[in-house]
Simulated assay, not measured.
Amino acid sequence: MSSSATDPGLREERAGRALLLTLDRPAAGNALDEATILALRARLDHAARDETLNCVILCGTGRFFCAGGDLKAYRALENAAALERVFGAARALLDAIEAHPLPVIAAIDGYALGGGAELALACDLRVAGAGAVLGFPQLRLGIIPGWDGTERLAARVGRGTAMRLLLTGERLTAEAAQAMGLVELVAENAREAALRLAADLEAAAPLAIRGAKQALSTLELPRAEARNLAAGVFARLWFTEDHREAERAFAEKREAVFHGR
């Protein structure tokens, strides 16, 4: 596994065809200030153009995955324009995660609270460590989720359960979060489990990985439109060199060697 320093508050590592982006502000619970929001967005945009990658893993340093927004830094926001600049950038970051061409995996070791839980909800897959805790305590701060978290939460658990979680600020264990569909996998160590998932992707064709995410992004579209989009993705993949290589490998009883073409 290779690593490199990036912007303050964010570390980047490469593990095979996976890119790990680690929030590295442990003294602040890995909370997102404006600089970290912009740095994370820039790294995701760069990863989207890297054809050697097949997934992105988001994780945090220390006891927190992410404590949400950096409330200490946000105290300096004195007007609506400043608020929209920072929170608009955060909402754009989460939208970029959803729209990213690669699967984005949230490796939740420790606490994912408030905006940290909203960040996890924007990812494609959520892996929770054995001691992970998720919650939405924003109402106790006199606000509601500010990064479109109400919509994402209700879409995953239903309106009634979302209302309960918001009103009570209940903190969920990894197992409770999995039971209600907030996370897909619970493991002793989320980062290691996410790396194992990434390793499993090595057997899949790179273009097909991107195509699968694109096809699954149609779930909110009208049925006919969603089917047409998925059919278009399928047809495009059918004529790729990787698909032909998979056909040859199947006939020759060997592992396929994909090149992303």
Rank of each mutant, 00 (worst) to 15 (best):
Leu216Gln: 06
Val233Phe: 00
Glu202Ser: 01
Ala208Tyr: 12
Glu225Cys: 04
Leu216Pro: 00
Ala212Met: 14
Val233Ser: 02
Phe234Cys: 11
Leu237Gln: 01
Arg210Phe: 01
Ile209Lys: 00
Ser217Gln: 06
Asp200Tyr: 09
Ile209Leu: 01
Arg223Met: 10
Leu237Cys: 00
Gly211Ser: 02
Ala194Glu: 11
Ala203Arg: 06
Glu192Tyr: 12
Arg191Glu: 07
Glu220Trp: 06
Ala199Trp: 12
Leu207Asp: 04
Ser217Ala: 12
Ala198Ser: 11
Ala215Pro: 01
His243Gly: 09
Ala226Val: 12
Ala198Gly: 04
Ile209Pro: 00
Ala204Met: 11
Leu195Asp: 09
Gln214Glu: 13
Phe239Val: 10
Ala204Asp: 09
Gly232Thr: 09
Ala190Trp: 08
Leu219Gly: 07
Thr218Arg: 02
Ser217Trp: 03
Ala205Asn: 03
Ala226Asn: 01
Leu219Ser: 13
Leu197Gly: 11
Val233Asn: 00
Ala226Gly: 05
Arg236Pro: 04
Glu202Leu: 01
Arg244Gln: 14
Ala224Met: 05
Ala193Arg: 02
Pro206Leu: 02
Ala212Trp: 07
Leu216Trp: 07
Gly211Asn: 04
His243Pro: 07
Asn228Arg: 10
His243Trp: 13
Phe239Cys: 10
Phe234Ala: 12
Ala204Tyr: 05
Ala204Arg: 05
Phe239Tyr: 11
Gly232His: 05
His243Tyr: 08
His243Phe: 15
Ala199Asp: 15
Asn228Asp: 14
Glu241Tyr: 14
Arg191Thr: 02
Ala194Cys: 09
Pro206Ile: 03
Phe234Trp: 08
Leu207Glu: 09
Leu195Ala: 10
Ala224Ser: 08
Trp238Ile: 10
Pro206Tyr: 00
Ala235Ser: 12
Gly211Glu: 01
Glu241Leu: 05
Gly211Trp: 01
Leu219Tyr: 13
Ala230Pro: 01
Ala198Tyr: 01
Leu229Ala: 13
His243Met: 14
Thr218Asn: 07
Ala203Val: 15
Arg244His: 13
Ala224Cys: 06
Gly232Ala: 02
Pro222Asp: 12
Leu229Tyr: 04
Phe234Leu: 11
Leu221Lys: 12
Arg191Asp: 03
Lys213Pro: 00
Pro206Arg: 02
Ala230Gly: 05
Arg223Gln: 08
Ala205Phe: 04
Ala208Arg: 09
Ala226Gln: 02
Arg244Lys: 07
Leu216Asn: 10
Pro222Thr: 03
Ala230Gln: 04
Ala231Gly: 07
Leu229Phe: 08
Ala205Ser: 03
Arg196His: 15
Ala224Glu: 15
Ala215Asn: 00
Val233Gly: 02
Ala199Ser: 11
Arg210Ile: 15
Glu192Met: 14
Pro206Asp: 03
Ala224Leu: 07
Ala194Trp: 07
Ala204Glu: 11
Glu192Ser: 15
Asp200Cys: 14
